[in-house]
Each structure stands twice: as C-alpha cells, then as structure tokens.
Design a binder for these strands. Structure first.
Lengths: 224, 224
DNA sequence: CCAAAAGTGTTATGTTTACACCCATGT
DNA sequence: ACATGGGTGTAAACATAACACTTTTGG
C-alpha cells in the first residue's frame, strides 16, 4: 500500500467519501472501480490515506479530487470507522464524509491513476464493495436521513430549483415514510422555506410542475 | 511523553473526556490536575493516548477510569480535533467524548499516578486548561446543547428522578434561552415524557416539589 | 403573615393531520 | 376521452405561547 510515502506515518488514517446526488428522483452514490490491489477491479467509495500535514477534511477533498475530479464541494463529517482489524497491515482509522452534488454540474473522471471506472449507483442497488465500504455506506445513508430533516439541505441538493413532487419523492425515499403530498407542500410553503419561481417543468407527459427554489433568507429549520 | 510504550505508534490518537453532571441545578464538568509535564500542575480534561489494540471509545473509557475512577459510563462521540500542530511532537488527533454522571453516585479519585487533584467546575467558571482543552470543552458544551434537546437525556442525567423546577433550570442554562416554566411542565407532561412518582422533595425552605421520572416507554422525542 | 418558589388553568395562535376535488398534459 | 400525476382548500386535532392566580413551606 501507500506506506512508503513519507507523508504517511504509522497508525493510519484514511478518509472515505460518500457523494450523493439525485438523478431523476432517485438517490445515487458515486463509486469508483479500483485499479490497484487489494480489491483490484472492485467498486469502492472514493477515498484514501490522509497526509500528516493536512486536516482530515482537506484530505477527504484532495482524495475526492484525485479519484473523481470533483472539487469545490462541502463535505460533512459522518463518523469514524475504528474496528481494530479493519486493515490487516496496521491500525487504520477511517474518517467518513458525505458530499452532495448536482449531477448536471459535475464532470466525473472515469479513469485516473488509481481508478478504471466511476459511476453513480442507486442506493437501493449497491454492488459488493472493497474493504468495509458497504458498511461505511450504510452509516452514511443513516446520516443522510438526519441531514435531510434539515431544510437547508434543499439548497445543496437542488441549487437550481426543484419541483415539489420531486423532493417529495426524495424525502419519502430517504426517510422511509409516507408523507401526504398536500401537507408536505403546505409545510414548505407556509413556513417560507421555498419560493415559487413562476417557471414550470415538463416531464414526459402529465401536468407540468411548478419550479421552486430554496429561500436563502430562511434560517435552517427542522422539517420532521 | 508516553511514546515509548510499544502500544502507541506513529501518528498519535488521543481521547479526551468531558464528563458532565448536575450539582444543585448547575452544570459542572470534571477536571483533573496534571502531575506530569507538559502542563504539570494545570487543570485538564481527563484523557490520554489511544492504544492500537482498542476501539476509540474503549480507549476513552480506559483513560477515564485510570484518571478519575469512573466506570460503567456511556460515552457519546462529539468529534475530532485535528489541527495539524496541536501537538508539537507529532501529528496528534484528539477524539472527544461526552459522559453524563450522577454526582451522588460517582466516587472520583483525587489522586492517581498521573494526577494530583480532581474536581467539578461549573461550566460558567472554567480555569485555563492544559493543551487546547478550553477549546475542546467549548465544543463539547455545544454538543451537550444538541443532546439535551432530545428527551432521552433526562434518563441519563437523572436516573433517580428529578423535579420539574430542577430540570427547567438546566434546560434554560444549557440552551441559553428563557423557557416559561408552566409551558415547560405542560410539554413534558402532555407528551408523556415524564411520570409523576407521587413523592416530593424538600429543598431548604419553600414549597416541596414533586418528584418525576423519565417515562421509559416513551420513544425519544425532540423537545426544542 | 410574608416572601419565595411550586403548582395549576385558560385562551389565542400556529402546526400537523386527514381527506376530496379540480386541472393540464400525452396518448 | 381518459389516465396520470400536479395543484388547491378546509376542518379537526394537536402543540405552543402568553399570561395570572393559588398553594406550601420556613422564617
């Protein structure tokens, strides 16, 4: 592994990114395919070893850039994976982060020095991943639930606006509950969390839906 | 420092405990006085270096026991302190934990191998601490705010029951807001978060207050 | 009998829930 | 014209906020 680089020292610290997006109402996570042993050819979450001269979050951003080309992203700390034997070589802690991106705006590199593919996977359909990444991803999805309860997440998930049916679906999916669509709409509107943009969006057929945007002047509120 | 012990390896991981209690309506934190360089004679939060063969939380518990004699405590992870130069010798991460104890039930050791004193300090009156512990403590107090919003914390803060005026004061103090005592009482009662025990408690003078206990059958609720 | 702190009740306002009907589009 | 999904309104239940009076104790 990368232990020879003098920037790494003995007890190891890794960073692991779980980058989510919404693609046609589905929540997806970004995976890369490894080009190195161990787990060569396996899908994995983008991440790697922390350098000793960088903050943990900086490290996560650097790794994300190196493996996927994503930059300018806000990362949120999820937690530490600290099982003693998660790595066979030495004690290795993993710091897990969540990032949210607009799938339209990112340009994911399919190949890098260390990867041979990169793609978005529906969180309901995740392949077997390298290391303990399936487990890590589950933790991150739990955290995503917590986050989505906060109204400000709308801004990050949909920087360009959204329709209410769209986000309604997302909230139901990630929270795992049914939400009355009429009441859901009312909550967002009466609490001034979203603003009508007077535009509409057409999907395939059906009545066009109004486009809304997040109200920047509204303080962060807990939605559920 | 303790680097010679073969259980520690190169990039360091420390654990730091912020143990809180309620003493006569005041929130206090447990500090120990150091008996070793650096910062010999200074007050500090109880903690120390993590061994490579233990989980982070286990390590925090071990350190807490060694330095204060507290055992059987639930610790809650607050976050990581990761400034690159927080320790001059080598890269040192600090994992911060919160514990809550009943001041009546703990038996704090005043002296150990590494400490020459231990005491409870009101969180409004903290001395200058060793390392970056003042900063760490501030972070932990912020987290305590988040925690106290959740109804389940009552169980841990007051395993033996409490009076409403008591916890009212605690909530006001830690959240830093005024709460109408009548509405506060009503909230806890109508939402079945607390149960009347039909006992009363006398303070010095004044009308005795009813003793309540946390309702174990109630799911965790967000109070504010 | 007074001060201090605890207990109780009411009303107005806001939030959440439950539920039924109309509207715009593509086929 | 109809099926599909989007938009709207209303009433009941519940939660919150604002506020005043009574009760029990020690001194």
């Amino acid at each position: 592994m990368e232990i020879k680089n003098p920037l790494y020292k003995n007890i190891g610290a890794h960073v692991i990114n779980t980058v989510f997006t919404i693609d046609k109402g589905e929540i997806k996570v970004l995976l890369i395919k490894r080009n190195n042993e161990p787990f060569k050819g396996k899908w994995a979450l983008p991440g790697g070893a922390m350098y000793n001269n960088e903050l943990i979050e900086e490290s996560a951003k650097r790794e994300l850039k190196e493996k996927t080309n994503i930059t300018d992203i806000d990362l949120l700390f999820v937690g530490v994976e600290d099982k003693v034997d998660r790595s066979p070589l030495l004690r290795m802690l993993a710091f897990i982060y969540i990032g949210l991106v607009d799938i339209e705006k990112v340009n994911i590199l399919k190949e890098t020095n260390k990867t041979i593919d990169a793609d978005w996977f529906s969180i309901n359909n995740i392949p077997e991943l390298a290391y303990d990444h399936n487990n890590v991803l589950l933790k991150a999805i739990e955290k995503l639930k917590d986050m989505i309860i906060s109204s400000n997440i709308l801004k990050k998930l949909y920087p360009n606006g959204f329709t209410i049916p769209e986000i309604h679906k997302v909230y139901e999916e990630i929270l795992g509950i049914e939400i009355d669509r009429r009441n859901f709409r009312k909550k967002l509107l009466t609490q001034n969390i979203i603003i009508d943009t007077n535009e509409t969006i057409n999907f395939e057929g059906k009545k066009p839906a109004k486009k809304y945007k997040f109200n920047e002047e509204q303080k962060d509120k807990r939605l559920f």
